[in-house]
Computed example of a mutant assay.
Amino acid sequence: MKQQFSEALTIAGTDSGGGAGIEADIKTMQACQTFSTNVVVGVTAQNTLGVQGQYPLPRGIVNEQFKSVLANFAIKAAKTGALFDAEHVSMVADNLAHYQLQNVVVDPVMVAKGGAHLLTEQGIKTLKEKLLPQADVVTPNLPEAEILAGQKINSESDVKQAAIKIQQLGSPNVIIKGGHAQDATVSDYVRLADGTDYWLTSPRINTERTHGTGDTLSAAIVAYLAQGADLKTAINKAHKYLADIIQHPLYIGNGHGPLNHGSWKDDNDEI
């Protein structure tokens, strides 16, 4: 019997080290039983120690990739990752609108794990103005949420307030990832369009093998949305996926190592 895969799209930059970016997205979607197409917005020279170079691609190449993918694949969900600058944020937003893509997850990648900036100040402004209004879900980490909301986050009440402010930028559903906190438990805050909110928690694993966690979570959400899962189920299953694979590290590289995307065994438990 032929295996049927749902089809999704990742729109981001590459990671030559294989741990984050489009490479992480493809591995994640495959592990979650979804076929991943991709639009490469830029290329990075990158490894577990940091980003050594970044090179956004010309508009024509980006637009042609969108045209090719959408002419041939039944894309049920899409995500964005590192988009580099205002010009590339704008061209991605224009393509999302032109092709009327559904189930759009925006991972507002601003700074790489090693500290390199992956989105300019003007790019952040354009993301707020043109991209977030087209997002169904946005998944900032704590530092990104502070930037988007324009406030400091020092408490659970701050997290909730920031999520409401980010909703007001246009994305009806917000997940603020708590991985940058220092608590013994990692707590992600979910606020949905209907006002429902809840926390997803998992034990904090003492490891540096966390390169690409943000890309991985958003890609897993997209994978499950492409399969037809409702948003809450997709979010919860993606959280479970990330919490599981982080416990099975790959000892690769000398810095912030990659996740073990293929270690996931989906037991289809109820979420």
Rank of each mutant, 00 (worst) to 15 (best):
G17H: 02
Y55C: 12
K177T: 11
V111R: 10
Y241N: 04
L131W: 08
H117K: 15
G257K: 01
C32G: 06
N206D: 14
G19N: 01
N254D: 14
P58Y: 11
S171I: 04
I153N: 01
E129A: 09
A82S: 14
I26Y: 06
E87I: 13
A97G: 00
Y99M: 01
K160P: 00
V89N: 09
V111W: 09
I147T: 13
A24Y: 01
D269V: 09
H211K: 09
N103G: 10
T28E: 04
L217D: 02
G262K: 08
Q182N: 15
V89F: 11
A77M: 13
N260I: 06
F35G: 07
E23R: 00
E156I: 11
S171N: 05
Y55F: 15
P140Q: 05
Q65H: 14
I252K: 10
Q65D: 13
Q102P: 04
E23H: 03
L119R: 05
V92N: 09
N72L: 15
K165S: 07
V92D: 07
V190F: 02
A219Q: 09
Q3H: 06
L192Q: 10
A12P: 08
T185I: 15
P140E: 01
N103Q: 15
L9T: 06
Q151A: 10
A234G: 05
G253A: 05
E23K: 03
G60R: 15
T126F: 03
V92F: 04
L200A: 00
D267R: 11
D269F: 12
A162H: 02
N206P: 02
I166M: 06
N206K: 12
A78D: 12
K240E: 09
V69K: 09
H98W: 00
M29L: 10
R191C: 13
V69L: 09
V106I: 15
F5K: 04
Q122S: 14
A20E: 03
I205F: 05
S171W: 08
Q54T: 12
A229N: 12
L142Y: 02
V40E: 08
L131A: 08
S90V: 00
I164W: 01
K152E: 12
V62F: 14
A238C: 00
Y251E: 12
T37L: 14
A238M: 01
T196F: 02
G179Y: 01
L96I: 14
Q134C: 00
N236H: 02
H88P: 08
N254Q: 14
